[in-house]
Design a protein around this nucleic acid. Structure first.
Lengths: 206, 206
DNA sequence: ACCTGAACACCGTTCAAGT
DNA sequence: ACCTGAACACCGTTCAAGT
């Protein structure tokens, strides 16, 4: 059976879950597909091109079928959540996405949806784009940090507490339980609401 | 003259400006320091350890001497700007920082300062930490995108306009001039204000 | 204490040659 | 059209041996 482009992408995503982004090599991928080393280069001109295809595949359903009955802020929350879920669906998914240049089909669909919601809410073109940029940086940054913390199981927590000094970091020590973020969903929602509240302010000023 | 740890870090940062994060190799660094390949490993146990030291050095003055006379929102803006400037001070500085695990001295000082400002403003421990997390994801994400766009000079713009379809991306096309972000400072301030406005909302609820 | 020299086990990418 | 086999030019890391 010959290899298809889709199989290479799917194999890449499966391998990503197995070995993480740093362990993902073209040679391992070829091996896991039962093929020789150079074979994948017939389907993708470079590793970067493959990573882009993988990133976009990961975002497949982010912008599909958004409930038009929701108010604008509900639609923003829903779409941000979908992006978040997509990024978290694969190991190192957020890092994979942020290492890739933006204009990919599903990423564009996400952006277009988000901007559309804010324009419906009354924002001008520039405000809408810039607000979506802020939302996106937040969602991606949050997911990346969450996956980074998950990747460094115990060493992370130990190293953090070791680095914190009661003299110089009283505030961080006082919030140590919330720093380690054992409540990622609540944590995510908190920052998302901050941004949405800021957008509400902009809409009020219209 | 023998090599010092500091010289290795400084050489790493200079090389970063020259060749970018992807071009930064231990071998090139050794060559630029006029030393043999393995020599840097006496000063740093791994490339990752060196990258961490470089990232922290980059953040050296972010938390020093903040004007206590400013209102809380002015202090947040000032500190966020300093982090931004530090990240932009070196090529791929934002990507360097986000690839490194958080608890480094200057990064901790930054976090402590930010949390302190929000606690002064009246927020509880958890709210303050979570709000600072949101601010930091935003600052780093914004700087990373800005440096990524700067790294792909013209190909980026071309590829974006080529990918945009009037049928499917009317909103993005309508905002094309603001998408390419020829106004990075204004763009940065816009999103930062969104978050600060959200924090104002939290403080009002107290 | 600090560095050299040389090796080990990998990489991404290319490309003639096969089928 | 799609893949193999083999090579090229690199990597990070280790470590005996030198000074």
């Amino acid at each position: 059976m010959r290899l298809t482009r889709d199989q290479v992408v799917a194999g890449g995503l499966d391998l990503l879950d197995e070995v993480g982004l740093d362990g993902l090599t073209m040679r391992r991928l070829a091996a896991s597909l039962g093929v020789q080393n150079g074979a994948t280069y017939w389907h993708f001109s470079s590793k970067q091109a493959l990573l882009e295809a993988m990133a976009d595949r990961m975002l497949a359903d982010v912008a599909a079928g958004l409930d038009a009955g929701l108010p604008w802020d509900g639609r923003i929350v829903e779409t941000a959540r979908r992006l978040r879920r997509a990024l978290l669906s694969r190991r190192d998914g957020a890092r994979l996405f942020s290492g890739v240049f933006f204009p990919l089909p599903n990423a564009l669909a996400y952006g277009e949806t988000m901007i559309g919601v804010l324009r419906d809410a009354g924002l001008g073109a520039r405000d809408a784009v810039w607000a979506v940029d802020a939302l996106t940086y937040y969602v991606v940054g949050h997911a990346a940090e969450e996956q980074l913390a998950a990747a460094v199981p115990e060493a992370a927590a130990d190293r953090l507490t070791a680095a914190l000094d009661p003299e110089r970091h009283p505030h961080m020590l006082a919030a140590a339980d919330d720093l380690a973020a054992p409540h990622p969903e609540e944590h995510f929602t908190y920052g998302l609401e901050l941004l949405i509240e800021g957008i509400r302010g902009k809409i009020r000023q219209l």
